[in-house]
Design a binder for these strands. Structure first.
Lengths: 242, 242
DNA sequence: CGCACTATTGATGTATTTCAAGCCAAGTGG
DNA sequence: CCACTTGGCTTGAAATACATCAATAGTGCG
């Protein structure tokens, strides 16, 4: 059940910076729990203060904010190896919520030990900062998408970006990405209505750049897809994992 | 000309965590230059690697990204005390650009000393991470705005947010905020066209929630403004400054 | 079976963009 | 001094992208 960092299969993937045994031992010392949550569980609540810092070990999640009348914006999707909950660790409360998109496993890193990290484990502290920075760069790109891309470009940019991230993580099986998003999630991530998302998806499918059925995404021509989206950023590798 | 950290007036403001003399000395040791740039200068260039880490000492700036056909999205506005350039310090290159909106002064913090910060000055490293997190939370909110607020709400949210930030910084003079944004900047920050921004501004002015003329913004009813925008976040204080 | 959730499609309404023109103030070169 | 440009702001009209309303259909589930 419990996954020890020393025996962690995720951190062995080539995307990640490989740590020494000693470093891994430090991380293991920090890690306080290995959580398994089922699909749909909200594990960080807006405006509340209970949440810890987590590394997503398996599954997908997303961060979101919403307006008081219910309009919802997904800020970014969280994939294995990503750190989540840094803001609440620093400010004591979270301005966003986070929800498991599939069943997930989370490595819990208690925030009460967070402050001392900077004195005792500077390497790790650096990695936390690095991951926080990368997370911001993802949100930057999503803001560009929401603000300045048209509906078709938005969808293309989202798919291109997820596909590239999944590829770096070795998550593609014969080019197929198991993508647990409903059209409502896609709409909420892109700032579109559900109906318009559906119609734009239909038009895009006709262009034959990708196939998407039953949660299986295959991008057949990543180059054209990226061109359509004007999306040219690659995922950063190697990167740290905690 | 050169502003020594020990004699820095900015850090004395009540918004900021007051540091001990010793801590300030450490910051001063890190600081390598005090730059003065004129309005319009781009001091961080997308995809390039020359930029350092900076604290904005005086003036306004903004971060932006753009698509290859010229569509531009302003990611956030940078006010005195804000840290900028963290991404380039971590990744070696920047995915965004940064431009001075007014004449500005920047405290330059060379990134070659950045890594060692974590070993030698853990307090400072913590503050850097803190400021990085806050920066992300600002972008989060801007993404919510771009994705899910209508035009009038967008403008109201932007003005409410800037006004609140300025207030915490003590930048208001008799309730007047000297705001160096053109309508094009507002449009680019909100994901609107210039024309629609202008027309929406006209409609909003008719509602008498604020006045804006010649770069002087006065929010007459911040409560109503925030309600219209559904913007309820306060700026975080006290906060660190480097 | 009924219920909830997801995808789909057509019709209609509206928000926003684009195009086009004009205005004003400030700067610049003759 | 003027003629001329430039940047920012403003306005109207037309085009379009996107949202909303409404209805249907398939799927899994208690």
């Amino acid at each position: 059940m419990y996954v020890r960092c020393a025996a962690c299969p995720l951190r062995l993937k080539p995307v990640f910076v490989q740590k020494t045994e000693q470093e891994v031992a430090l991380i293991e010392e920090w890690k306080s729990d290995h959580l398994r949550l089922s699909e749909g569980t909200e594990f960080i609540h807006p405006d509340q203060s209970r949440s810890e810092l987590y590394t997503l070990f398996a599954g997908w999640a997303y961060r979101y904010k919403e307006l008081s009348d219910g309009r919802r914006q997904i800020l970014n999707f969280v994939l294995p190896g990503d750190l989540i909950g840094l803001q609440s660790s620093m400010f004591g409360k979270s301005f966003y919520g986070a929800v498991a998109l599939t069943d997930v496993e989370l490595c819990q890193l208690p925030r009460r030990k967070f402050r001392r990290l900077f004195e005792r484990m500077p390497e790790l502290a650096y990695d936390v900062t690095w991951l926080g920075s990368r997370s911001e760069s993802v949100v930057d790109e999503n803001l560009l998408t929401a603000g300045r891309r048209g509906a078709a470009e938005k969808i293309a940019a989202l798919f291109a970006s997820l596909y590239k991230r999944a590829e770096t993580l070795g998550l593609l099986v014969d080019g197929v990405l198991e993508m647990p998003l409903t059209q409502q999630h896609i709409a909420d991530a892109l700032g579109l209505s559900l109906v318009h998302t559906n119609k734009t998806l239909a038009k895009l499918r006709a262009q034959n750049l990708f196939t998407l059925a039953e949660g299986q995404l295959v991008v057949k021509n990543l180059r054209s897809m990226s061109r359509l989206a004007q999306h040219f950023e690659e995922d950063i590798a190697p990167r740290p994992i905690i």
